[in-house]
Design a protein around this nucleic acid. Sequence first.
DNA 1: GGGTCTGTAAACACGT
DNA 2: AACGTGTTTACAGACC
Length: 679
Amino acid sequence: MMQESGTEATSNGPANENGGASVEGVPREGRPKSAAPSAEVTAADFLHLQQHQALQMARQILLQQQQQSQPQQLQSQQNTGRKSPKANDKQQSLQVPVSVAMMTPQVITPQQMQQILQQQVLSPQQLQVLLQQQQALMLQQQLQEFYKKQQEQLHLQLLQQQQQQQQHAGSKQSKEQQVSAQQLAFQQQLLQVQQVQQQHLLNLQRQGLLSIQPGQTGLPLHSLTQGMIPTELQQLWKEVTNAHVKEEHNNSSSNNGHRGLDLSSPAPPKNPLLNQHASTNGQYMSHKREGSTLEEPSPHSHPLYGHGVCKWPGCEAVFDDFHSFLKHLNNEHALDDRSTAQCRVQMQVVQQLELQLAKDKERLQAMMTHLHVKSTEPKATPQPLNLVSNVTLSKSAPEASPPLSLPQTPTTPTAPLTPLSQTHSVITATNLHSMGPMRRRYSEKYNMPISPDISQNKEFYMNTDVRPPFTYASLIRQAILESPEKQLTLNEIYNWFTRMFAYFRRNAATWKNAVRHNLSLHKCFVRVENVKGAVWTVDEIEFQKRRPQKISGSPALVKNIQTSLGYGPTLSAAFQASMAENNIPLYTTASIGSPTLNSLANAIREEMNGAMDHGNSNGSDSSPGRSPLPAMHHISVKEEPLDPEDHDGPLSLVTTANHSPDFDHHRDYDDEQGHDDML
DNA sequence: GGGTCTGTAAACACGT
DNA sequence: AACGTGTTTACAGACC
């Protein structure tokens, strides 16, 4: 829900962004970003506004200074740090203009500047800022003039070309071709100019110390990344990075240099939170940046030197050797106002990129969240395919029912190669905060092995009050199989539930009753009398037997299952299928680790185990007797053509119990709060 | 619409 | 008597 609403809100993307920015504090109009669509208009407007504002600001400053007949006194107050209300007021009056000036820099006439200097109204820092702004502004003006000239030249060229074309009226075809070619070239030139222009304008605007947008970058990222699993983050990063690359390509190749940056604005702030973050971060970011940027130029790495060219923004000096470059760097790009200004510009660029990244991430997050919610729907949606894998929260593909599922010993957290369709659905269930009867959904369906899912989403289930998409039977089985001895007392099962799932930390009476009910109801759970009392074990065969029933009547299926249980040729077939599946990227349980390899290894292991355990498997179900262990230990391989579509599906491989390193329950039991907590 | 599976609730029995 | 454990029944929802 949250996500959805957020998504909708997103639609306002650009608008919101602007609004947010302005709200931030200082109204920075002229934000290139917001005005993205029409670059030229924007630029002009921006300049106009900026100049106007700056002028006013400067006047304000001067006025204030004049009004304050005792500037020196004021300054002394500032220096001494007195905090009388009066002093504060004065400071404020002073600060306001300064800050405004920073944001809306305007070229101050030499006379004005002199006035300011003479009156000594401003502190050294303030003066410095003003100076920097002045420099930046002058740079901006110069650039603008430069652009103007460029454009004029282009126009002249165009005119000349047209004239030439008219004069040399050759064959119509050649003429047309020429014209079109020239026009194309011209257009390209224009575009290029516009690009550069826009880019510079943007940079300059940023130089104006517009911190709002830039600031957005930082927090969003953090917020987004928070709570994410490394794998998830990696995935996210991957995707985002790709997106960025694409965008960057588009920008560079196409026209708008701004585009890339502007795109960010349209990015719908699916999460209001993000916007908030963005808006709040401005200052923080700027500070941070300053520090980091300055550190950039490290003598050894020399990111500023590549292919014999100085990569300093705006400098393309060529050098034969590194030494000359260093010289150049020290001489031409020393720590002066110009370099500082350029540095600032670069910082802004980086910030914009980061902002873009954050927005894309946010978008991705919102998408995933949204899909999660949607997946709630009983029926698996086709799209979720990969999502599941990618989705962080439920990284796992639940034990969806793969056509061929190896009745693995659940213990192992192997990544199951689950059929896409199923996978999503599982996730779905998980997501649902479904409080109600979540009913067996996918997971239980077919009693799939949940181990992989659980292990992969362990953290999620442990910390999120979400009902796991598994049946009680599946969970109980999982709990038992995870135990070192493949047997648990009722209380231990309880503990496992509470430990592994936040959801089962509530309503203990209800779910405990369900657990007991399931233990008694299902044949697959065998009660074994023990010295200490009684323990519960799992009869894997019985457990697997239940599937056929679910498979809506297809005797053939049952046959197959039984065959596979016999560890016949089917196994190898299944194994092959699994391998084939592994090649499918989507199935790779997501970018989590290297599931493919793992599953393959597990498959092999299982195969071997299956063959070896074969002998033991049969007896388990009927007579658990004293040693229930053997029964569950064996790994059975099953072929499950549940649905027509699934036939070709992948295998879900599960390795033998004991494999899952993640779960060391045995030890934990005692530590666990126990069911008592729940009560 | 019926059968099956699952979840939930509840009653009951038994042992500690 | 209270509690834990285990069994059983009943019902409802979901799925096939």
